[in-house]
Design a protein around this nucleic acid. Structure first.
Lengths: 138, 138
DNA sequence: ACTATTTTGCAGACTGCTCTGCACTTGTAC
DNA sequence: GTACAAGTGCAGAGCAGTCTGCAAAATAGT
């Protein structure tokens, strides 16, 4: 799952806003992009199967087929291989070193990872453990 | 600070092993690479100022000038912009959700971030605080 | 139905990245 | 010194990614 920079720009907007026509897309780009350039990317992305389109009045509306998560995973994987030993863990450690995190950041990370908020001793996965409550993501 | 895939392969080996000649480099690549291809990258990287070289007997030895950290920052930045809101924090949260981390992973992350191992209350940066000991990297 | 406007399809120019081939230079062994 | 092997410099082929221009098609307004 690899995107070129131009393709990624288009996919990003589509991931964030759902289904859009070229004119709508053009308005949403942070940096201006010319119409023919945009449609060149759209065509390529449809050919590659990352987008699907359908008529909406006069124009086509484009929608992402490939999900954000798979693209993200691919890029993270690539990054983890280039730096560190290729594991996601080492990548996070590297990131943690770069960014000076606060304690509340750590708490958020722990929560995002689905772990309990307090610094309880590591619970061994017992065989009859039943999750008493499932905590939804924030 | 942006590297092409080919350039990155070379830089990665050089970051990990220090100063190397082309034959040494070729042996260290996980996937085989042909000699002329390698030297093409080396030449480009020297021109761009990312590598420096010096004679070692018959051949040149190449050494990274650009540090791993700056390349990493650039790629992370790019990733944080493509996904999430562009902040490093949101990127880490995204990662944490992907990877199911353990409590000890969290502890390692906290340590890497330069925070105290226990869940002590956030220490305010007092004006006369003197760093008692400087902690070297890993 | 006619016209004006928007949107599309396509062909291709330009650029940068990847990789190759070959002649030349440098050092080593005899 | 001469022969040989290892290493280098350079020129450029091939290809993918980016972006443009224009003629054709589709739609909306009159």
């Amino acid at each position: 799952m690899r995107f070129t920079p131009g393709e990624l720009k288009v996919m990003t907007v589509l991931w964030q806003h759902g289904e859009l026509t070229p004119p709508q897309l053009l308005e949403l780009f942070p940096e201006p992009m010319k119409d023919p350039a945009l449609r060149s990317y759209l065509t390529i992305l449809v050919e590659k199967g990352h987008l699907r389109r359908r008529r909406m009045g006069k124009a086509y509306a484009y929608k992402a087929v490939t999900q954000e998560r798979s693209a993200f995973s691919g890029m993270i994987q690539q990054l983890a291989e280039a730096f560190g030993d290729g594991s996601m863990r080492s990548l996070m450690l590297y990131l943690a070193k770069q960014e000076k995190l606060t304690h509340s950041d750590i708490d958020e990370i722990r929560e995002a990872a689905g772990l309990k908020p307090l610094d309880s001793p590591p619970v061994v996965e017992a065989k009859s453990v039943k999750r008493s409550r499932k905590k939804g993501a924030k």
